[in-house]
């Protein structure tokens, strides 16, 4: 049953994404692209782009997007409920423990060693997105590479690192630049 599958997949995303924001990304990729094949890597890249441009957590955005594509609005509700359900329980429990003991040293110890792993996982997902930008679903060969995409990526990375430009502005400029260059070259 597809609703149950959606619910359980996003339950895993909600339960194991620790650290917020991009931490959910590698899990969503592993469930939705690798695990169930609900989205291609290209669609997943589009999804992350859309999620970044719209308000709300990536996990909730992804649950809605994937849910609707697979099983319509009920699918979206099942997936979204799946991804917030573990939070509701775990956060309530932690809050209870916190108000009772006001001490989180063990939790902080676990989090401290989780952080480098989560950073590494985000890096892994980031590099597979970079590959998707560079060659799409093709093999990693020089003749398949979208060089303009690489140049835009490098320029965007530079202005983000060096001058701390607003991420959404940088993304919009990349989109406009790509469209503009193709229009000028007449290759639309």
């Amino acid at each position: 049953m597809v609703y149950l599958k959606l619910f359980l997949s996003f339950l895993k995303v909600g339960m194991f994404s620790i650290g917020g924001g991009y931490a959910a990304m590698p899990l969503i990729q592993s469930e939705v692209v690798t695990g169930h094949g609900w989205l291609s890597m290209g669609e997943f890249t589009d999804l992350i782009t859309i999620a970044e441009m719209t308000p709300g957590p990536i996990a909730v955005n992804s649950a809605t997007f994937v849910g609707i594509r697979i099983a319509g609005v009920p699918g979206a509700i099942a997936a979204t409920f799946g991804c917030i359900f573990p939070s509701c329980i775990i956060v309530s429990l932690l809050a209870f423990v916190y108000y009772k003991y006001k001490n989180m040293s063990v939790l902080q110890g676990i989090l401290q060693s989780l952080r480098p792993a989560v950073v590494a996982l985000i890096a892994g997902a980031g590099f597979s997105l970079l590959r998707s930008v560079a060659v799409g679903e093709e093999a990693l060969l020089p003749e398949n590479v979208n060089w303009l995409g690489i140049v835009l990526f490098a320029a965007a990375f530079f202005v983000l690192r060096k001058w701390k430009w607003n991420p959404i502005l940088v993304m919009l400029l990349c989109g406009i630049a790509n469209l503009g260059i193709h229009v000028i070259l007449g290759s639309v």
Binding site: G21, Y22, M25, T45, D46, I48, T49, E52, M53, V119, I122, A123, A125, G126, F127, L129, L130, S132, V133, N146, G149, I150, L152, F153, A154, A156, F157, L160, R161, P167, V170, M171, L172, L173, C174, G175, I176, A177, N178, L179, H182, V188
Partner: peptide
């Protein structure tokens, strides 16, 4: 094409965070 260009941007944003 707009989306494709924005994908380059989003990867840069993610790797900048990393």
């Amino acid at each position: 094409l707009l989306l494709k260009g924005m994908q380059s941007g989003v990867v840069a944003v993610i790797l900048d965070v990393v």
